[in-house]
């Protein structure tokens, strides 16, 4: 089976600073791979390169076998990108259904299927009852679920989640986790960037911890914990990345 994510010695420099440094990362079909690291470690930069938003400085990144630079269009057809910041400003005067239908059309869902597909994904994240309310009136958790729904419109092979539960209450987090698990059971591959170790522990098949743009350690959550005799991923994380606060700009 071909790799869904195949990143090899990927680097991205911004002027003098190196945000991502010779990173290697893979994900097979149906895997949930976690990308962990302190703030400014290079998680979002890596994700932006995989989402075709930022060209790498060197190295290669392939998604579903397509190069993120040379075959960006093919990559875009196959990824669902759920961004870290939900920014409803651009569509807060739209209803959840309208936003979803518009994005369905932008993902080239056949015209006749747009309405049905939008209703399907809204149902999937439990927003059917609120579909005709303005996004403006949604809670933070509902907005995140709406983003998740929109990321699924074109049945992507890879779902890229950047901090999917940032700032959510406990109920909403569990809700989002349930959706992610359900998607995985259906064979979706997920790249999950998170600062929540409990989230990574619950959801991820494998993890890569990065710091200063470099891979520090990789393995299954159980392996990583067993290797240093730790009870929690928090311990693993701090052991590998230290206690010092990060001062790099994000």
């Amino acid at each position: 089976m071909g790799m869904i994510i195949d990143v090899e010695r990927l680097s991205r420099r911004f002027g003098q600073s190196t945000a991502v440094d010779e990173l290697t990362l893979t994900a097979g079909a149906g895997e949930v791979v976690g990308l962990l690291g302190p703030n400014g470690a290079g998680k979002t930069t890596t994700i932006r390169m995989l989402a075709t938003l930022l060209p790498p400085s060197s190295g290669t990144a392939r998604v579903c076998g397509f190069d993120v630079v040379r075959a960006a269009g093919d990559v875009r057809l196959r990824i669902g990108y759920v961004m870290q910041q939900v920014s409803p400003m651009g569509y807060y005067m739209l209803t959840g259904r309208e936003k979803t239908e518009i994005e369905a059309a932008l993902y080239h869902v056949p015209r006749k299927r747009v309405k049905a597909r939008a209703a399907e994904v809204l149902e999937l994240v439990g927003l059917s009852a609120h579909a005709d309310r303005l996004v403006q009136a949604y809670s933070g958790g509902m907005q995140k679920r709406l983003e998740l729904a929109c990321g699924l419109l074109h049945r992507p092979e890879l779902l890229i989640l950047d901090e999917p539960t940032l700032g959510l209450d406990v109920q909403s987090r569990h809700h989002v986790w349930d959706h992610i698990r359900q998607l995985c059971q259906e064979g979706m591959t997920v790249l999950l960037a998170t600062n929540y170790m409990d989230e990574a522990d619950r959801l991820c098949d494998r993890l890569t911890i990065i710091d200063h743009g470099r891979e520090v350690v990789s393995g299954t959550p159980a392996e990583l914990k067993a290797a240093i005799g730790a009870d929690s991923l928090d311990e693993v994380f701090l052991r590998h990345t230290g206690h010092a606060l990060r001062e790099e700009a994000a």
Partner: peptide, 10 residues
């Protein structure tokens, strides 16, 4: 950042 989301679409 919504422009980024749009740019990640095909």
């Amino acid at each position: 950042g919504y422009l980024d989301k749009l740019m990640s679409m095909p």
